[in-house]
């Protein structure tokens, strides 16, 4: 039983995403162990955004994800 809870809580941690603005778009990203941020999903209604390389799901961003203007 305790094993089950352990697995579930681990899954939750793996699935946890955060949101931030990156290059003018809202992105959902996952924090990785090495400090990088992995893009999970970009939230936009503009179909062009989905073709941009920097927003492809799985892309890892090494730098701080928040835009410094």
């Amino acid at each position: 039983m305790s094993e089950n809870i352990g697995i579930n809580s681990m899954d939750d941690a793996v699935l946890k995403t955060e949101e931030a603005e990156y290059k003018g778009q809202i992105v959902q990203y996952m924090k990785m162990d090495d400090g990088g941020n992995k893009i999970v999903r970009v939230i936009s209604t503009d179909p062009k955004v989905y073709l941009k390389k920097e927003f492809q799901p799985g892309k890892v961003i090494k730098e701080q994800i928040f835009e410094n203007k």
Partner: peptide, 26 residues
């Protein structure tokens, strides 16, 4: 490039519709 936006936009409504209550991360 940034200023240009598509003439047709696309709204994808996928998964569950999340309203006032936040759903678990699964």
């Amino acid at each position: 490039d940034e200023d240009k936006t598509s003439e047709i936009h696309c709204l994808t409504i996928v998964g569950q519709i999340e309203g006032h209550v936040m759903l678990p991360p699964q």
